[in-house]
């Protein structure tokens, strides 16, 4: 199954995803720039993505804990989600997300 990801430069990537993986893990595994510093513990909000409007209805609504963490991203939109909370499944084959600016690795890292 595929996960479509638009990166920080606007490039589109078609990533092969596995059932049961978190979207964050797929994006990280393919080496795209996603910080995901807590590793999926729902404690950092550095795997923030925008879900394509056509797909937003397909996802379970965010939990109150996820909403709380989304409060800590400065660039949240109505279609904001934490990609560690999206579990890949056949239903989501072709899911399209865009990496949010706040999920980038830090500037120092980008510079080096």
């Amino acid at each position: 199954m595929k996960l479509i990801v638009v990166d920080h430069e606007g490039n589109r990537h078609e990533l092969e995803a596995l059932e049961g993986w978190r979207a964050m893990e797929v994006i990280r595994d393919w080496g795209l720039d996603i910080k995901a510093e807590c590793g999926g513990a729902l404690s950092c909000a550095t795997c923030h993505v925008y879900v394509d409007e056509t797909w937003i209805e397909m996802l379970d609504a965010p939990s109150p804990e996820e909403e709380d963490m989304l409060d800590t991203v400065p660039d949240a939109e109505a279609n904001s989600r934490l990609s560690c909370q999206i579990l890949m499944s056949e239903d989501l084959d072709g899911l399209k997300v865009t990496l949010a600016p706040s999920c980038r690795n830090d500037e120092e890292a980008a510079r080096a």
Partner: peptide
């Protein structure tokens, strides 16, 4: 907006 980790001066 809380804290995040940065490599900082280590570099």
């Amino acid at each position: 907006f809380g804290l995040t980790m940065k490599l900082g001066p280590v570099a």
